[in-house]
Amino acid sequence: MSPPRFRPGQPVRVKAWFPPGHCRTPFYTRGKRGRILDLVDVEPDPEERAYGRPGLPAVPVWRVVFDQHELWPDYRGPAQDRVVVGIFEPWLEPVEEAG
């Protein structure tokens, strides 16, 4: 297992991947920017386990905070409304701090 790549507060983007098959990355987060909240755990990869394989090495899972306005451009609530989603590390890439 490689060491976790991210740190709390770090801006990240969910990869805009659209593979067939089982995964645990909600469609509505794909390609969206968020911030790392914390490391949940290191877990066997569900994309492998779903097909009867062990899913090892285990994969870090991060809680990522998304602003509602990032997820839904037409969101009508206050700017501080947000969604927290557990995302498996291979789906995340670092992005530059917002200017």
Partner: peptide, 11 residues
Amino acid sequence: MTLDELRRGIE
């Protein structure tokens, strides 16, 4: 079996 397999089977 695993929960992941249950979920994949449902999907």
